[in-house]
Every structure is written in structure tokens, then in C-alpha cells.
Design a protein around this nucleic acid. Structure first.
Lengths: 333, 333
DNA sequence: GGCCATTATGCAACCGATTGCAGCTTGTGC
DNA sequence: GCACAAGCTGCAATCGGTTGCATAATGGCC
């Protein structure tokens, strides 16, 4: 059915190995022969069978990318960046969605293992122990989580939280709130610690509120608590929570940013689709996708690699949900 | 490195073919032997190499899914549905994003062709002629577009537009607007024709506005035109345009839905993240993903298949952006 | 003109599995 | 006690390429 290397060889009157070399080691074949082979191959519509090639070379030229939820707007930019970056290096990316289910995640990794040269694990939900076991099967680079002994690409959310608090302080806010994230999450702790430190540096109070569910609804519910805490500026665990908070506050008759300033984290909306446009900490998702691909390719190219960890900078994007407080806070210095 | 069928055979004292059959044709091997092989395989951590299997069987048990833009919120639910549905049938889905570039799309199809049993083409940007050429390489099912001679899964956007107009008419609106989509798009024509017919049936005027760019900004810009047209209810080409329109109208001091009702198409936000929650035509993306997988698997299973076309129903989801008009329109019957 | 290095090509084993065919062992029926 | 069938298992070719080694042809150099 499909045209193979043998068909081309026969049509050219050369041996299969010559045809093979024409594609995988062109410098080893006479330019004249090479051109003839290429012409015939083109004419016959020959395409190398990557799966067959993988069988002998051990290189599939594919990489896997496993994410918890494609529908989470945080991931697509990262996926796109990884794909286009990999394509430029003659690699293809197979994306798989785990539906947040660790069992599915494990199954996918095992299924992918033999068909890819390495896997990008994006915010994995698996236990460290399971990941440690699976790394026998296929090389990993982990994105957005640190697993001991594995190369990782991290985004410095702590620094982002710091920038956010400094921004509020610079605007004149002194009574700040933090809508905290899930207690178990390491990102949640990083955000809390950095925010607390930055608030202390700025001589501002920081009231921790929650944790509520890290969703729009969670933010909406937190609105009342925010009012009760009498803060004028709030940093939310993520953009969903921030957007929910804005909605909740407006339902209570509180204007953002006139009465209270709100900052999110992640920049999932990128200023679109929401009013007021959210001031937020943008994550370097595109850089993370590219970097992860580079690290993985480097890792599969060499025999041994140290567990390199790259930490990428976040950026505070100031838009319309933050402003100076109307009444100066009481405890101004 | 990895444990192969030979390692298992040797450890068991049987021939490789027996091990092979244990996995691919269990009924042909003595239960006693089979259990022994399974036990040893388990203990050694043997996993079949799907790529090698594909070489002889011609079946990879993978399917490809090519979309124009993963970041477009319209696609992720479809992707997730296709993936989980395929996984239940022991197939894996490789997702690839073309960045809206037909050349990339073609390249991806060719690269994928040998590694998958079939490809789901989601809103392809390629010309019919190119698609016709590529179908020699790999079986296709097209989603969201009709290509002559190819199986397709369509979503009945015309009926959705009809429902939307009927909803506005039922609320009492008689002066309606349609924010039209790109002139070349077939969906755009389907929406226009169905909306026009439904308006005529409901004895309502339908003013076509635009086309503007099918984006949030396009909708925002159209707000002035909508006001000038003196309509009380508007159907937008998609949700992005509808959301932009709501923003544009509010900037002009017009309330939605109090002053003007707005309906979108696609249901990308699913009622989240936007005020007012948008009344919109929900596309059956989940059903489309599942159906497309089923059609593709059926297609690769048999030798010849007719170019079946499945058309899926859309649903009007009434939320908060539509209401009865305040002032009854002049030409009430 | 002979020797050697260089270049180009062919040969054949191999990657990890599948599968048609043949052969062996049992068991059954008569 | 023999013929035959059924049930298992082994053998070896095959899928579509890659690659180390051998061989042949060419050219340069003294």
C-alpha cells in the first residue's frame, strides 16, 4: 500500500541502504545518486516511516506533554509554545489530558513511554514515589513542580506575589488581604510567605483570608470576609478567585478599584473578556514551554544529566483593577 | 535496556511467539503457560512496545486530532471528550495545534500519518484539494466542516441561530440585529440564512451589521452601529463578539439586558467569568468529539465506508443577557 | 605503475513484535 | 490398537527502516 524504501530502491536500481542513507546520512552518498533517489522518492510520494525508524534508532522524534486539564486556560499557551518550539527541532508533541486523575496520568505515561523520547509533566498530580518509579520508563522534565532528582522548570510565583504586594504598597495601601489557596499546595505556601515578607517590608498589615475553593465561586464567597477585614487591597491566589472576588464585591456595592484594589495571579485572561481588566501576575508559560522542551531534548541527547532546575521570572501586569486607596488608611506612618 | 518479549520468553523457558500470543491472542495458549508468562512479565515489568507491534499489524492504536488553536476555548471540551472516549476503546489521542497555519497543518498530517490509524480534522484550514490529496495517506474524519466525499461531524449552527431569534421574538423583540461573521465562512452564511428565515417567520425586522472582526474587539466596535440601527435584540456571530458588544454598549451607557438583549454562539464561557451571564447557543462539542472518534474507529475497522455525515443538535442556553424589551417596539401587531 | 587513502555502494543482521505453517502431544472414538 | 482431531508450541519470515562491515572504484602521490 504505502511506498517504502524498497520501492524507491528498486525504481532507482540501487540498494535499500543507499536510499536509507540518502535520508538519514546524505553526506555519505554521491550527490548524483542522491539527487536521483530524491527525485524518484518525490515522484513516488515516499515518506519515511518514523515508527519503523524508531525501532532501530531508539529515537521516535516525538515528545509527550501531559497536562491535568487542557480546558484550564493556564495551559494552552504553554502547550502551543512547546509544540511550535519542538517542531522547529523536528520533534512532534503529543498532548494528553489526564482529567486531573492520577491513575489516568500514570496510564498515559506508560502508554506514551515507548512512543516518545521523553515526557513533559505539567503540574503532575502523581505522588513523588510514583513519579520516581515511572522515570525508569522514560525521561521526564517536570513543569511547575519540584520533584527531587528530576529536572524541572519552575515559575517564580513567590517573586510575583512580592511584586504584587509592593505594587499595592506603592499605591498607598497599608491594609492588605491575601485570599489563600489550598493548604496542601506548595504554590500556596510560596505565595503566602513572599506576600507576608513583602508586606512586612512595606510596613503594611496582611490579613490572610480563607482558604476558600480556588475557583471563581470561592472568590465570590470571600467578598464578605474581605469587607469584614477592612482591607483596601487584596492579592488572590489566582485569577479565577480574583474575578470571583470582583463580582462578589460589586454585588455588595463595592467598586473595584475605586473602593478596593484586587490583584490576581496567572494572567489567564490576558486583559480580555473581563471588566475591569485585571491587574495580575503573569506567568512565563510560553518561556516555560520552550525551556522545558530544550531541557528534555538536551536530556535525551546525552547520557547523563544533572537534575537541572530552571526558575523563570514572573511579571506584574498592571491593568485596571488596582488604584490608590481613596481614604488614607488610619495607621499611616 | 527495556525488557522485551525475548527476555520474558527466556525467563519462562518458552518461545517468543508464545509470549506474544499470551498478549495478543490469549485463547491460543494453555492457561497454565499463560499464567506463568503473565507472572514473569509482570515481575520483569514487561510492557509491549506499541511501535513495534504497529510495524507488523499496521495498527498503531493511536489517533491524531488536529485543531487550529488549542487556546481557543471552543476546542478543549471537544479534545477532552475525544481523548477520554478513545481511551476507553484502548486508543490514544495525539493532539496537535496548527497555529491556524495551513502549511503547518499539512506538515502535521503527514508527520502523524504513519503514527496513527486515522486523523480527526477539526475545523481544518486546508483547501478541499489539499485535503483530497492527503486522504490517500491516512483516513480522515472532519469536524465542523463539510468536505465532499469525507465523513464529517457537523454542528447545526443554523438551527441554533433559529432558536436564538425565536427566543428574542418570544420575549417581544421585533427589531433585531445580526452581527455577521467573516464573509467567506460557511457558518456565517448558515447563521445568516437561518436567522433571516426565523425573523421573517416571527414578523420581525433583521438588520445585518458588519461584518467586523469576529473578536471581542470587533463586537466592541459594533456597539455604535447596533445603537444606530435602533434594534432591541442582537444575535452575535460568536460569544467573543457578543461579550465585546456588551462591553461596548455599557461604555455607551446602554444596559444589557435592560436596554438591549444580546445572544452569543458557542457557549465558550459556560456562564462563568462574565457579567451578565451570556445567553448563547451551546455547541455539542462533547458529543462531536465522541461521535468523531466513533466514526473514525469504525472507518479504520472496515475496508470501505460511505462518507457518512452526522449533524448534531445545538441548544439555546438562556441566561442573563436577554430579557423582554422595555418599550414595546413601534410596529407591534 | 604500484600503493594507499578516500569515497560510494552493497550485504546482511537487527530493532520488537506478529502470524501462517508445521510438528508434537494428547485424547477420543471405534 | 489405530486413525484422526484438537490443542499447544516452536520455527521462521516479515513489517520498514538503520548501520557496521566488506567490497569496489577512483584518484593522488612518489
Amino acid at each position: 500500500m504505502a511506498v517504502t524504501i524498497r520501492d524507491v530502491a528498486q525504481a532507482c536500481g540501487v540498494h535499500v541502504s543507499t536510499v536509507s542513507r540518502t535520508f538519514s546520512a546524505p553526506h555519505l552518498v554521491n550527490p548524483e545518486t542522491r539527487n536521483r533517489v530524491l527525485a524518484v522518492a518525490e515522484q513516488l510520494g515516499y515518506r519515511p516511516n518514523r515508527a519503523a525508524r524508531a525501532l532501530t534508532t531508539g529515537r521516535t522524534h516525538n515528545i509527550g506533554l501531559i497536562v491535568a486539564d487542557i480546558a484550564n486556560p493556564f495551559f494552552p499557551p504553554l502547550i502551543k509554545a512547546a509544540q511550535s518550539h519542538a517542531r522547529q527541532r523536528d520533534y512532534h508533541v503529543f498532548v494528553a489530558d489526564t482529567d486531573e486523575d492520577p491513575r489516568v496520568e500514570e496510564e498515559l505515561i506508560q502508554a506514551l513511554a515507548k512512543q516518545v523520547d521523553g515526557v513533559l509533566l505539567c503540574s503532575p498530580r502523581l505522588s513523588n514515589r510514583t513519579i520516581d518509579r515511572l522515570r525508569e520508563d522514560v525521561p521526564f522534565v517536570v513543569i511547575n513542580r519540584h520533584v527531587k532528582g528530576l529536572p524541572a522548570v519552575l515559575m517564580d510565583v513567590g517573586h510575583g506575589a512580592q511584586q504584587a504586594i509592593e505594587h499595592l504598597v506603592a499605591l498607598g495601601h497599608r491594609r492588605l488581604g491575601l485570599l489563600s489557596g489550598p493548604p496542601g499546595s506548595s504554590n500556596s505556601r510560596l505565595i503566602h510567605d513572599a506576600a507576608a515578607a513583602a508586606a512586612a517590608d512595606g510596613a503594611a498589615d496582611l490579613t490572610v483570608i480563607g482558604p476558600n475553593s480556588p475557583t471563581e465561586q470561592g472568590g465570590q464567597i470571600a467578598a464578605a470576609e474581605v469587607l469584614a477585614a477592612e482591607v483596601t487591597g487584596v492579592l488572590a491566589y489566582n485569577d479565577l478567585v480574583a474575578i470571583g472576588l470582583v463580582e462578589g464585591l460589586e454585588e455588595l456595592g463595592v467598586q473595584v478599584p475605586a473602593d478596593i484594589s484586587v490583584i490576581g495571579i496567572d494572567d489567564i485572561m490576558q486583559g480580555r473578556l473581563n471588566r475591569p481588566k485585571l491587574t495580575t501576575v503573569a506567568m512565563p508559560t510560553i518561556a516555560a514551554g520552550r525551556t522545558a522542551v530544550d531541557m528534555l531534548l538536551q536530556l535525551v541527547g546525552t547520557t547523563d544529566v544533572g537534575p537541572a532546575v530552571t526558575s523563570l521570572q514572573t511579571t506584574l501586569v498592571v491593568r485596571d483593577s488596582t488604584a490608590a486607596p481613596i481614604r488614607l488608611p488610619r495607621e499611616v506612618t
